[in-house]
Design a protein around this nucleic acid. Sequence first.
DNA 1: CTGTTAGCGCGTTCAT
DNA 2: ATGAACGCGCTAACAG
Lengths: 347, 347
Amino acid sequence: MPESGINGIRPTIRMVAAEAGVSTATVSYVLSGRRGDGGPGVSDVTARKVKDAAVRLGYQPNQAARAIRTGRTNTVILSLTMLSDPWSLAVVEAVQLAARPLGITPLILGDADWAKVLQSHTADAVFVDAASEKDWETLATLAARGHKLVVFDESLEPVGFDVIRSGSRPGCDLAVRHLLRGHRKVACLTAVGPGGFAASQRYRAYTENLEAAGVAVNPEYVAGFERGTAGAYAAATQLLSLPEPPTAIYATSDYAAVSAINAAQRLGFTVGGDIDIIGVGNTVEGEQMSPSLSSVGPVDFFDKVARLLLERAMGPDAGVDRPRVLDFPWQLFVRESAPLRGPGTMN
Amino acid sequence: MPESGINGIRPTIRMVAAEAGVSTATVSYVLSGRRGDGGPGVSDVTARKVKDAAVRLGYQPNQAARAIRTGRTNTVILSLTMLSDPWSLAVVEAVQLAARPLGITPLILGDADWAKVLQSHTADAVFVDAASEKDWETLATLAARGHKLVVFDESLEPVGFDVIRSGSRPGCDLAVRHLLRGHRKVACLTAVGPGGFAASQRYRAYTENLEAAGVAVNPEYVAGFERGTAGAYAAATQLLSLPEPPTAIYATSDYAAVSAINAAQRLGFTVGGDIDIIGVGNTVEGEQMSPSLSSVGPVDFFDKVARLLLERAMGPDAGVDRPRVLDFPWQLFVRESAPLRGPGTMN
DNA sequence: CTGTTAGCGCGTTCAT
DNA sequence: ATGAACGCGCTAACAG
């Protein structure tokens, strides 16, 4: 007999049945609120007895046992690689808000090993950010196994799982062109992953729009950084300390832009005056800071993500029949850090 | 038959047994690596057959079913109220690092409803931050039910669960006294909870040490704020915009201190020169920023927390027999934002 | 209409 | 190396 401690301590449905003087079936029907619907009716008197007994013993159904029968865990998993990113926190918040009234608990998986965890652990639906091409097969396999996945990726093709695309590329175009209206000395501040940043769509929006506008890309104005906020701050400082500093900075994420604003202010620049800074993602943090951050981002993104995830979680247990692709139109949010400028205002 | 989809799709131990031509018991022994130890011996040939079959079918044991028998989920839960706080992220990181080699998955609970979730969901151990007096009974009940809890709280008494105390008070004393060596115009920047901040030990370290040093507490120098980083930034800005601004700021958390540094720099102050700023918590973020943040904090905190949590998770299933109290000595970390000063340097 | 019996669905584990 | 029981909660089918 394993864990006699728990056994001796945690009340089971059988104990409740004994305490109430009824069968376990009756207890199950009463406590899962399913009497009348499909199952047999239970008199109010009996229901009372059962509920009282349950309270007296402090009974709570064992979710693991329930899951084995029903296939539901009342749980969704959020696999988030950059927990510190405001973007991740926004996802968490939106999902929590939507999940609570449904009795569903969002659990966050902090590292990126969703592939391993999902092999054995089970949730009613799973949100995966930062998937990439190479994960395609893994995702397809998991989906075929009955996992309901909602994957955030710009280019993945859905196969038994849903894909959410932020459509960031046109949005980034908006951001760069916004700066190009009034500037020619436009710098780019971007995070470098393991594979460099040349391939990133967010970076290419920079080079391609500059070229399209007849502005040569100055290598000195391209600042890649690693290691989060600190790195972004350092890279921005370096940009602004150039003999001929840029008059505008296109940051490929809001958090990089925030760091750039801090760096600029520290160096005595007036953001939105001497220097314009724009971000990507349109996070609340950027919106609330001072000066408020101009940015581009999808509209109503997080709520819709949460809605889709929970719809899947509550939906039929059979695999996702018609996988969906959610594509978000991006919009330019002009705020203080990079106001609207006429052509030739600065250069 | 519920969820025929999953049933039809996800291979079970019985399918593996059939495929390998052995019994489910044998499969179980082989795949859980328990042959020889307690379980019966299984020949290498059979073991091979089983493993091959498992791979062929892509079998993965169902954790829910396993949990129902063994009482273990190979999971720990981290209940963290302030997900955006660097402190929380440090906890996550330390636990992830320690858990991975043990085959344990840390799951993060983002909102504060651990009480509800733990009623039904089960984990091998649970870390709870931001508990308070009023949670004492809930915690004790959960512990009595067999939950293994590690609770972070300054004053809670352990009853069947472990308590981690950061012993922040003496640390805060160090911080305030550090500033008082060279300053008399010392301000306090602190978050206000629902119950105000007067009761907070971190705040009282401010008032009491000022009084002890014969410095009157100037109400104008006490800045409470709400709503995270943005609020801290605003409150710090207000402090520094006073007709007679303070020459030093004691922030009751590192993230407030970071905001204060940003605000000060924006206003043209030289941090560590015109104005000294010290934080509480000694986070990596503060250490890595520029100027580096002076702070006070416990030594080796996160690793030890992770160690205790996982020790409990791996430990016997019977409730925690001898609950432990982990008390961390705090230390002063003098860095650039508030260097060591002799008496009377500034006032 | 009310309640129970019996058996399901897992992986684990003890006798055989 | 195995059959069968076990732990849990759920639920179809049956009995009163």
